[in-house]
Every structure is written in C-alpha cells, then in structure tokens.
C-alpha cells in the first residue's frame, strides 16, 4: 500500500483501493453471502417469514442427496466437463506450442487475431450457431451426406455430444492462452539442448516442454473445467432431454420453482464439490495452487 501511494499519490491510490474493494465486496462477497444465507433457510410464504417456521436448516442440502436423479446429473456434469477439459487440452497444446515456438512473431499475431475474433461473438450466438450446424437438416449432415460418408442425417443433438462440442468451442481459448504463455516463457535453447542431446520430439515435450508448462496447463484446465461445470447457456441451447446439466437444475429451482433457497444450496454444492474435485486432481497430478496463480 505504501508502495502504491508512493507511485500514484494518495488520491489515485485511494480510488484504486476503493474500486478493488467495491469489486470484491459488492460483486463477489456480498452476493455470495446472501445466497449462502438463503441456502440455509426455507422457502416460505411471505406471511411466514420471520415466524416460527423461519429457521436455519440443512434441509435444502439434504434435498440434493435425497434425489438420485440430481446426483446423476451432477456426476454427468463433472464427467462431461472433464471430457471437455481433456479435449481442449489435447487440441490446444500443439497449437499453443506452434504459436509460441514455431511460427514467426508476425504470423503469431495474425493467427491470434483469427482465433480471438470468434470470442467477440456472444456465447448464446455461438451456441446457437452450433445448434444450426448440428441440427438434423443442418450443414454438417448435408455435407456428410453430400460427400457420401453417411447415408442419412445423424441426430447429433442427443445425449451429451452436442453439449461437449459447444463447450469445447466456447472455452477452448481459456485453455490456449495460459498454455501459450507458459510455453512462450520457456527458453528455446532448452528445447534445442534436449534435441541436441538426442531426444526425440516426443521425449523433448514429455521431459522439457510439458514439465515447464505444467502451471499453464493446470490453470487452463481449472479454468475450462470450472467454466464448463458452471455453464448455463451452452447446455440450455445444445442439451436434449436426456442430457441435463447441473446448472439447468439450479436454474429450474430458482426461476421455475422460484425456490431460491434450494437453488442457492445447489449452487453452493456445485461450487464446493467442484473445488474438491479440482483439488483432488491437482493433488494427484502434483500441481500446487501457487503454480496456477503464476
């Protein structure tokens, strides 16, 4: 803080500190605290609020553990979010490596622009675009039938496959950027030294590039996983009746059931369980939180 004041003067420092505090408190902490409180209270008619029935309880949380369907949806969400994360990682790593180490810097800028432009389009439009592409009479089927690969159109939008496609497309850049940053920070001489000592391309990646870019890979994975698990727009556009996403259940509780209390409880369960899952995976892969913060 003293360093801040010395560099920017007292008034600017106060403004910056106040804005940061506002962001954290008003936009993060307070809304969450309100929902947190909601989640321990019952959904009561207005005249009973403050009455003898208005007590703090774990009933909202128990609702989740009492409904096998919701538990199934939860695990499906975790599983397919993991699949999306893995697909993103496999697709992005070679691209990130190429951008960071193979292409000339001028080409990298062009390439990035091409990659980033789709991100300027809203997530709803992008999901809907995939809905059109994947629909039974859509361009993908027309193309596949046209080239004679399949005989009649395939129903893509059933099960989780369309959701996975949509999520990969929506969040892939959140995987690309941290991995790109990590690989770019690697001294190219290290790659060359590995080759010079006789290592194959695979070995060089396995022993030199991947260990170095592990923090970037980890932060990309955490980001994509959390965004997937918490995504509403993509599943609600691309999911079908047999592929429900956990966020859709939260939304149903809150906006269809108008039961914000159970909805809050579900939202917190999602958050906490996702954090537990991510921590476990990080523990298994031997990544520390400080690595990701870099």
């Amino acid at each position: 803080m003293q360093e801040l004041i010395r560099r920017y003067g007292i008034s600017l420092s106060v403004i910056m500190a106040a804005m940061t505090a506002f962001w954290l408190l008003a936009l993060v902490v307070i809304p969450n605290l309100v929902l947190f409180k909601f989640s321990f209270r019952l959904y009561l008619p207005v005249d009973q609020l403050g009455g003898p029935n208005d007590v703090y309880t774990l009933k909202n949380y128990i609702t989740f553990f009492d409904s096998p369907i919701h538990i199934n949806v939860f695990f499906a969400t975790i599983m397919y979010s993991s699949i999306v994360t893995i697909i993103c990682l496999i697709v992005t790593y070679p691209i990130a490596y190429m951008l960071a180490k193979v292409l000339k810097p001028t080409d990298t800028a062009t390439f990035f622009l091409v990659l980033l432009i789709p991100l300027w389009v809203s997530e709803i439009l992008r999901s809907f675009a995939w809905f059109i592409i994947l629909s039974a009479q859509g361009p993908l089927n027309a193309f596949l039938v046209g080239i004679g690969l399949i005989e009649k159109p395939i129903r893509w939008i059933t099960g989780f496959q369309a959701v996975v496609v949509g999520l990969v497309y929506a969040y892939i850049l959140f995987m690309l950027l941290p991995i790109y940053n990590a690989i770019q920070a690697l001294d190219t001489n290290q790659i060359e030294a590995s080759q010079d000592l006789g290592a194959s391309t695979w070995r060089t990646h396995w022993r030199v590039v991947i260990p170095h870019s592990k923090p970037g890979i980890a932060s990309g994975c955490v980001m994509v996983f959390m965004l997937c698990a918490g995504s509403v727009v993509v599943p609600s556009t691309l999911a079908s009746t047999n592929s429900r996403w956990f966020t859709e259940i939260i939304q149903q509780w809150m906006f269809e059931g108008l039961d914000w209390n159970v909805g809050s409880a579900y939202a917190f369960l999602l958050l906490v369980l996702c954090i537990v899952f991510v921590s476990l995976v990080m523990r298994v892969l031997n990544v520390r939180l400080v690595d990701i913060a870099k």
Partner: peptide
C-alpha cells in the same frame, strides 16, 4: 537432425534443465 548427429552443443546460456536435479541433467542424453 541434431538428435542423430555425433555432436554435443554447449549453449551460450548453457540451457540446463531447471526442473531436473543435476544428475538427471547430466545424464539426460
């Protein structure tokens, strides 16, 4: 390719592998 030539290069900045202990660095080849 470099990995198949009978040469070994010592880089200007040495390019040691910081994530490996010394002995693994030395015997990477």
């Amino acid at each position: 390719r470099p990995n198949a030539r009978p040469t070994a290069l010592i880089f200007q900045n040495l390019a040691l592998f910081p994530l490996m202990p010394i002995w693994e660095n030395i015997t990477f080849g």
